[in-house]
């Protein structure tokens, strides 16, 4: 997906200068981005970066202190009842009723979105098939596994074919099998022309799903672009992960003095380095770490990825 193609997509969501304060704390600071039809846009950042607050404002759940949100050509605020019909929200928490069956949950939220009669019945059946719960449709959701609940949570958001589907950390707490199933479902949405706003702190998900990604930290978008564009920001540096024990603090101090090493970050279980020419520097790095008292158990060279970008831009690892 190239930037040129992006510019030809009809804009579904436009966010300009969004600001949100909680007391004296600014949780969202001058955030702007746009999403086109059929595009999957990712907000990648650690917990507490402001992703959910941005989503809450875009969904009309809370008002913005400044800035504007335009959805499908109309201004979006908490009072924009009609405009909300364009959104399919999949909250981070499981927003389903445990005492209702999967089908009853879908029927209820479908009616809330204005679906009725045959259309509602038809869409409910389609979504149950899509999320793989057709054979469990009549069971109360409190009997479901975590993964099944997650899939239903997403299915409810898809039911009314929204113009914009908002997925807030949809794979948190999900087993690998269900996670893969969810990601496959999301991959198929863009082909149907649906715009998707996807928040995650998992780099792999952002890389796999998103056409464009905004790296967000402390309420601000640090960088935005396709994966390739973002990786270019690192200047071609590699990441080297050193795993082991012993005196990692002394090793970090020694490695920071080594020519070619840009950044060292880590804890007692290992260190993460950003370096120019990783393969070339590997031998002196291992020698320096060992000399400083760190007992290495494994060493890995990682070519530039979004985690490297995050480290490059913020000076800290994405897992923080």
């Amino acid at each position: 997906m190239t930037a040129d193609v992006q510019t030809h997509r009809a804009q579904v969501l436009g966010v300009k200068g969004l600001v949100k304060h909680y007391g004296a704390h600014t949780v969202v600071d001058d955030v702007s981005f746009h999403i086109g039809a059929g595009e999957t846009y990712g907000l990648l950042g650690p917990n507490g970066a402001g992703k959910t607050t941005i989503i809450s404002m875009v969904s009309g759940l809370i008002p913005a202190d400044a800035g504007s949100i335009e959805l499908a050509g109309s201004a979006m605020t908490p009072a924009s009842t009609r405009v909300k019909g364009h959104i399919g929200l999949v909250p981070q928490e499981l927003a389903i009723y445990p005492d209702l069956t999967a089908k009853e949950n879908l029927l209820f939220f479908g009616r809330l979105q204005g679906l009725h009669g045959k259309e509602l019945k038809h869409r409910t059946g389609d979504v149950l098939e899509l999320i793989g719960l057709a054979d469990r449709a009549g069971e109360q959701t409190k009997k479901f596994s975590g993964g099944m609940k997650r899939r239903l949570n997403i299915g409810i958001g898809l039911l009314h074919r929204p113009t914009l589907l908002i997925l807030d950390e949809p794979t948190v707490g999900v087993d690998p099998q269900s996670r893969n199933s969810i990601l496959e479902s999301v991959e198929g949405l863009a082909t149907e022309g649906m715009a998707v706003l996807y928040t995650t702190h998992y780099m792999e998900e952002a890389e796999r799903l998103c056409d464009r990604i905004a790296i967000i930290d402390e309420g601000r978008i640090q960088a935005e672009g396709t994966r390739g564009e973002l990786v270019e920001l690192t200047g071609g540096v590699d990441r080297i992960d050193l795993h082991g024990s012993g005196n990692t603090g002394a090793a970090a101090t020694a490695l920071r003095r080594l020519p070619g090493v840009q950044h060292v970050d880590g804890d007692a279980s290992g260190l993460t380095l950003t370096v120019h020419n990783g393969p070339g520097l590997l031998a002196p790095i291992v020698a320096e770490a060992g000399g400083a008292g760190m007992a290495l158990s494994s060493v890995e060279i990682v070519r530039p990825d979004l985690e490297s970008v995050f480290l490059h831009l913020t000076g800290k690892a994405l897992r923080d």
């Binding site: 009309g60 759940l61 009609r82 405009v83 909300k84 019909g85 909250p91 927003a95 939220f109 809330l112």
Partner: peptide, 14 residues
């Protein structure tokens, strides 16, 4: 607290 209120509030109902 169960998370369903956000879904109600994001729906096209007053």
């Amino acid at each position: 607290e169960e998370g369903t209120l956000s879904r109600l509030q994001a729906a096209p109902v007053t």
